[in-house]
């Protein structure tokens, strides 16, 4: 049985179609990522699967339960970490866990055992009796994840789990999430607009933009569609001078807003030739970078836009993109 099956799920807000006939499956034990810019429909999709919103049309089964006909069944079998914090800051970490365990009617003995075990797993045992208001952002996230696992869900939803966290904490969290999915064999759906997060964590990725899923595959396969290497050149002169650039070793040329990217095999050996051609054509070059294809390039390929341009967000996002490119 699939952990999650989604068929043509659609949600409209007035005239705006937030999620447009989205379909995908998730295997048991798989980490599935919904990758896309802010406002692409990731959270709306997750909210429908978690029975927080009801879809306008389409169908979805979560752990075998229909999200419209069997809400309690769905709720019992999912754990969810919301994008925004959802802890009670006036309670201790332990009490937040306990509240959750009681709410899900876990018998006392099992509850206490699991609480110890999970707090240990996320490294919060020493801080369990401190008020949550004294926790750092990363600790809160870890506590929320531990809490979401307390009732042994079959599917765990993580909505932008590392949003606003520093790089070191993000790395820790990724480790935890990987460990969890390995040790407990639960399916994880996570949404993110961080390329490196999706790349590092997910077994498969659905790229979502403007409410539609435009590609689903493993990160490796997605990147393979881009060819071997990518040369990204920053230049204002795309049209006329570059668009028709087609030596036989170039596989694809795409432009976006002051950059253009060239997909090819063996970028290093062709770089000097490429530069020579560009200089001959009197193209202004502000910068050149050579890298293996990233999910950013994949997103660009499918949407014609960069993730960081399509969202309304933050410098941080831009920084992350640059980091991703450097690797």
């Amino acid at each position: 049985m699939k952990a999650v099956t989604v068929v043509d799920l659609t949600k409209k807000f007035g005239d705006f179609t937030a999620v447009d006939r989205v379909s995908f499956d998730i295997e048991q034990g798989e980490i599935f990522g919904l990758l896309g810019p802010n406002g692409a429909g990731k959270t709306t999709t997750i909210s429908m699967l978690a029975t927080i919103l009801s879809p306008d049309s389409g169908k979805a089964l979560v752990a075998g339960h229909d999200i419209q006909k069997d809400q309690p069944g769905v709720r019992k079998s999912i754990g969810i970490v919301f994008q925004d914090p959802s802890l009670d800051e006036e309670l201790t970490g332990w009490e937040n866990m306990d509240f959750h365990g009681r709410l899900y009617r876990i018998p006392k003995k099992i509850r206490l055992e699991r609480m110890e075990e999970l707090l240990d797993l996320v490294g919060l045992t020493e801080r369990k009796d401190d008020f949550v208001k004294t926790y750092s952002g990363g600790m809160r996230r870890r506590l929320e994840i531990a809490r979401g696992l307390l009732h042994r869900p079959k599917v765990l939803f993580l909505d932008e789990p590392t949003l606003g966290l520093d790089p070191q904490t993000r790395n820790y969290l990724w480790d935890y999430i990987e460990k969890l999915s390995n040790e407990m064999n639960i399916s994880v759906i996570l949404t993110t607009h961080y390329m490196d997060e999706a790349d590092r964590l997910c077994d498969r990725i659905g790229i979502i933009d403007r409410g539609k899923i435009i590609a689903i595959d493993t990160p490796e396969n997605l990147k393979k569609t881009m060819g071997g290497d990518v040369i990204t050149i920053r230049s204002p002169d795309y049209h006329g001078r570059i668009a028709d650039l087609k030596p036989n070793w170039i596989e694809k040329v795409e432009s976006y807003d002051g950059f253009f990217s060239i997909a090819l095999h063996g970028a290093e050996e062709h770089l000097s030739e490429l530069i020579r051609i560009l200089v001959e054509r009197q193209v202004t070059i502000s910068s050149v970078s050579v890298h293996k294809p990233t999910l950013e390039d994949v997103f660009l390929h499918y949407t014609g836009r960069r993730i960081r341009d399509s969202g309304n967000s933050a410098k941080e996002q831009m920084r992350m993109t640059y980091r991703a490119r450097r690797h």
Binding site: T51, E89, L103
Partner: peptide, 13 residues
């Protein structure tokens, strides 16, 4: 506002 209500509302109660 602090988001805690969501935690309660999404539980199977």
């Amino acid at each position: 506002q602090f988001g805690f209500l969501k935690e309660t509302l999404v539980a199977p109660v």
